[in-house]
Amino acid sequence: MKRFFLSAVALTALAAPAFAADMPARTYTKAPIYTPPQAIYNWTGFYVGGHLGGAFAGNNSLEGNSGRFLGGVQGGFDYQFAPNWVLGIEAQYSWMDRNTTNFGFPGATVVSSTGANQLGSVTGRLGYTWGPALVYAKGGYAWRDGNGLGVSVAGVPAGFTTNGNTKDGYTVGAGLEYMFAPSWSAKAEYQYYNFGNTTFTGGPAPVVGSRFNSDEHTVKVGVNYRFGWGGPVASKY
Rank of each mutant, 00 (worst) to 15 (best):
R3F: 12
R3M: 10
R3I: 10
F4G: 03
F5E: 09
F5V: 08
L6H: 09
L6Q: 08
A8T: 10
A10Q: 07
L11S: 11
L14C: 02
L14Q: 02
A15S: 00
A18T: 00
F19A: 08
M23E: 09
T29A: 07
T29F: 07
P32E: 09
P32C: 11
Y34H: 12
T35E: 15
P37F: 10
A39D: 15
A39W: 07
I40F: 11
N42V: 03
W43R: 02
T44C: 09
G45Y: 14
F46N: 02
G49T: 06
G50D: 01
G54A: 14
A55R: 09
F56V: 15
F56G: 13
G58W: 05
S61Y: 01
G64R: 05
N65R: 12
S66H: 11
G67F: 04
F69T: 11
V73E: 00
G76C: 05
G76L: 08
D78V: 07
D78T: 05
F81M: 08
P83I: 00
E90K: 02
W95I: 12
M96P: 07
N99R: 15
T100V: 14
N102K: 15
N102M: 13
F103S: 09
F103D: 01
G107R: 01
T109S: 14
T109L: 12
V111F: 02
S112R: 11
T114W: 05
N117K: 07
Q118I: 01
G120C: 07
G120Y: 06
V122L: 14
G124W: 13
R125F: 04
L126E: 10
Y128F: 15
T129M: 08
W130N: 15
G131Q: 14
L134A: 15
L134H: 14
V135D: 04
G139Y: 00
G139V: 06
A142K: 02
D145Y: 08
N147S: 11
V156N: 03
G159K: 02
T161G: 10
T162I: 04
N163H: 00
G164L: 01
N165D: 12
V172R: 01
G175F: 02
G175D: 06
Y178W: 15
Y178C: 12
Y178Q: 12
M179F: 13
F180C: 12
S183H: 15
S183Y: 14
W184N: 04
S185G: 10
S185D: 14
A186T: 12
K187R: 12
A188M: 12
A188V: 12
E189R: 02
Y190F: 11
Q191M: 14
Y192D: 03
Y193L: 11
N194G: 15
N197P: 05
T198C: 04
T199G: 07
F200L: 05
T201Y: 01
T201L: 03
T201D: 06
A205P: 11
A205N: 09
V207C: 08
G209Q: 11
S210C: 09
R211A: 14
R211Y: 11
N213L: 06
N213F: 10
S214K: 01
E216L: 04
H217C: 09
H217D: 10
T218L: 10
V219M: 07
V223F: 07
N224I: 08
R226V: 05
F227G: 07
F227N: 05
G230T: 06
G231A: 12
G231Y: 03
V233S: 13
Y237V: 01
